[in-house]
Amino acid sequence: MAVSISAVVLLGIVVFVLIRGGSVRLAHALACGLFGFFLASTGAAPLITDAISTLTGWISSI
């Protein structure tokens, strides 16, 4: 649970910096956020969660 909260905070900071820097427009960021929100309710969500958990476990073991 702590990893997902940290990832959300990290990704939120990245999106904020990209919007402020002009690299990403607000509408694009909202579209990506909504895509992620709706993707989380599909059957792909457990696969994505497992992949991220595996990746973070691999990174923490280095």
Rank of each mutant, 00 (worst) to 15 (best):
V17E: 07
V17G: 00
S23D: 15
A27W: 13
A2F: 13
G21D: 11
S6T: 01
S6R: 10
F38M: 06
S4V: 02
G43F: 12
I52G: 00
F38C: 05
A2V: 12
I13K: 02
S53Q: 08
V14M: 05
R25A: 09
S61L: 08
C32K: 08
V15L: 05
L11S: 11
G12Y: 07
S53K: 12
A31M: 11
G12P: 01
L34T: 10
T49V: 11
T56G: 00
R20H: 14
G22P: 07
V24F: 15
A44S: 04
I13C: 02
A7I: 11
V9Q: 04
A27N: 03
H28E: 15
V3P: 03
L11T: 12
A7Y: 12
F35E: 04
V14T: 04
D50M: 04
R20S: 11
G22C: 03
A29E: 09
V15M: 11
V15K: 06
P46E: 02
T49G: 07
G21F: 15
W58V: 02
G33K: 12
C32D: 04
L39E: 12
A31S: 08
I5A: 06
I52S: 01
H28R: 11
A7M: 13
L34V: 13
I5M: 09
L55K: 10
G57A: 10
A51M: 13
S53W: 08
L39A: 14
V14C: 00
A7L: 14
I59Q: 01
L30A: 12
R20T: 13
V9P: 02
G43P: 14
A40D: 00
W58H: 10
F16K: 14
L47W: 11
G57P: 07
I5Q: 09
V24E: 11
G21R: 15
C32A: 12
R25P: 04
T56I: 07
F35P: 05
L30R: 09
D50F: 03
A40Y: 02
L30T: 09
F35R: 09
H28G: 04
L26R: 02
V9I: 08
S60E: 15
S60Q: 14
S23G: 15
L11K: 15
A7F: 11
A29S: 08
F37C: 01
L55V: 10
V3W: 09
T56N: 03
T42Y: 07
L26M: 04
L26P: 00
D50L: 03
L47V: 13
R25I: 09
S23Y: 15
S41R: 14
G33H: 10
V3H: 08
S53V: 05
G43E: 05
V14N: 06
R20F: 12
A45Q: 05
G36Q: 06
L30E: 01
A31D: 08
I13R: 06
G57R: 10
L34E: 08
A29I: 05
I59H: 01
T42H: 05
A2H: 13
F16M: 09
V8Q: 07
L11Q: 15
D50P: 03
